[in-house]
Amino acid sequence: MAATSTPPESPEVAMIRVRRNLRYYLDQGFYYLTMAFALAIAITLVWIVIQIGLTAIPAITQFGLGFLTSTTWDPVQNIYGILPQIYGTLVSAIIALVVAVPLGLGIAIFLSEDFLPTYVTTPIAFAIELLAAIPSVVIGLWGIFILIPFLRPFYTFVHRYLGWIPLFGTEPRGNSLLTLGLVLAFMILPLITSISRQTLVSLPPYLRQGAMALGATRWETILRVLIPAGFSGIVGSIMLALGRAMGETMAAAMLVGNSNRINISLLEPGSTIASLIASQFGEAGRDQVAALLYAGLVLMILSLIVNILAEIIIKKFQNVER
């Protein structure tokens, strides 16, 4: 090694040393402030889970995992199980996705492509995002007074001609899992549309140019390049929407019919975990509150699973993106 002598430090170099002036302390203060906020959120989440868990302990110890598979909900004898609610939660959410995903994605594609000039698409996109701002109780009222009467002939028609399919095998009632599913679809549509649209709009233009230059048509470009490239964003929006549909309370309580049964027919009333909690919490005794909080815990875990799945899917597809 060549011996090198360290040159003496010149006065200019001293300038680059950290100076503990006001800017330094502001910087540090800001760092700790934001860290405190971030921690506060995590702690709140854990705290909520612990508190709910503690209150639910009597029900957890009494019913164990049988709570998930029992169909009895009997406040008189204090025997509880939420299988019908789990079923209702999942089925209504799936109906919502089946309706809202193709619709939302279709709208997102329509708004992100240059089918219409931007002075038309921008207000439409804004209006769709405003849909998300309607309070769910208002949507519930709308469901009861407008949507159900409107859907009745359609339900009758479906039952008459498709009644041989067990899913439509019973006389239609207004309040049903199908009604709830459709309303939920309406409620999650803005989420799917706006996030998917953002994703598609923010894709780099050279992807489209590359595909078009290889002789792809507009639709081939959309289906084979743009949607795969934006896949993680689109899946993210769907998962977010699923979480929202499963947790929706007010509209569910108003529209699902709150009947504690599992019926293969979507035209029958049912119940969801959130609607169960909302409709029973008011007059619940001690044991029942424990059971309801246990149900709430189950719902949280279901949502957690959905979110973890979403993360996994997004991670899996992100590696092919820039």
């Binding site: 992807l207 140019q209 590359g210 595909a211 290889l214 002789g215 084979r224 390049v225 092919v320």
Partner: peptide, 17 residues
């Protein structure tokens, strides 16, 4: 500007469409 796809899919893209 390769597509965010596999090398294989990139090359045969034009042939596919």
């Amino acid at each position: 500007n390769p597509f965010p796809k596999s090398i294989y899919d990139n090359v045969v893209f034009g042939a596919r469409v």
